[in-house]
Amino acid sequence: MLYDTIGQRESEWAGMTASEIGEVGGQDGSLLVIPVGSVEQHGNHLPVITDTLLVEAMVDAAIERLDDVPVVVTPPVWSGFSPHHLSFGGTLSLEFANLRATLEDIAHTGIQNGFDAVLFVNGHGGNGPLINAVVSTVGVDTDAEVLGTTYFQLASDRIEELRTTDTGGMAHGGEFETSLMLALRPDLVGDLADRDGEPMDEHYEWGGQDLLDGGNVAVYRSFDAYSESGAIGTPTAASAETGERIRSIIGEELAALLVAVHENNV
């Protein structure tokens, strides 16, 4: 279950009392972290909760590495902006304006507990432009510092060195996400035999090629224009060992970001 560890971490909003949250928020340089995922199809081998589960796990990996940083993590926002996945079924998507308003409301009400900064940590590519917008819409209305990042874009150079596939192999449901799932929740990973997704085939060379190569040109396409299975990349190249190394790298990088935000707001 997604929330089976509630109350086991001092930094987890859902397991804290209101007064405990206020105590952390009132500390100098306090930071509120809001993980944002999605519920969407990931081919025939990964569950629809993949993006939400992984972003929550990456935030946990960062929190484990912190010492004396006043931080609280909200429950993950589990529904993202995923209209491009709807043709495959299994996807629960919010409208752009609704998700934007939801994230704005969560941030504003969270900040009311005294936090000096708020960081949105995104786990779904389709949420990226929306979260960038929310950083501005929330930031202009509060004295708190507002930031946003997409976890799989952190330390992409270091992760690039781990890959066993060419560019395109770490696309949606490919080597990257499947490796993390094998490391974190192997019980949710289906049989990988003959489950390779199609290689990424974006017409424009400036467009995104996989999770580590987002490209410089945005283009909208329904996902069934790329794939018959819903997955893109090479999940059969995934391994739990690669997943553990990716988790460690992202945990270190995200922890460094959290420390920097804290220090900038002291």
Results as ranks from 00 to 15, higher is better:
S227L: 04
E12A: 14
F176V: 01
L258V: 06
M170C: 15
P129A: 04
A260Q: 15
G37K: 08
S248H: 07
D60L: 06
Q41R: 10
E198Q: 15
L184H: 13
I250F: 04
N127R: 12
E160P: 01
V59N: 07
V77M: 11
L184K: 12
M200N: 14
G251Y: 01
N127M: 09
Y3S: 14
G139S: 11
L180M: 15
A62Q: 04
E161M: 02
V71S: 07
R195G: 02
D143A: 13
S19D: 14
D67Y: 06
L66K: 04
F223E: 03
F96I: 03
P129I: 02
M58V: 08
L184D: 05
S82Y: 00
S30R: 06
R100C: 09
G125A: 12
S38H: 06
G169A: 08
A133Q: 14
E104N: 11
H85P: 01
D224E: 13
M200T: 15
E40R: 09
D191K: 10
M200Y: 05
L254Y: 08
P47L: 04
E145N: 10
F96L: 13
M1H: 13
T50E: 07
V134H: 01
G148M: 09
R65K: 15
I111L: 15
E161W: 00
G168D: 11
A193V: 12
E56P: 00
V71I: 13
S229M: 03
I131E: 08
A240Q: 02
D187V: 01
V259D: 07
M58S: 00
L180F: 03
R185G: 01
P235D: 10
E145L: 06
S19M: 06
S11R: 09
S179T: 07
L192G: 06
G43H: 08
N44C: 01
P186I: 05
T149W: 05
H108Q: 13
L254R: 05
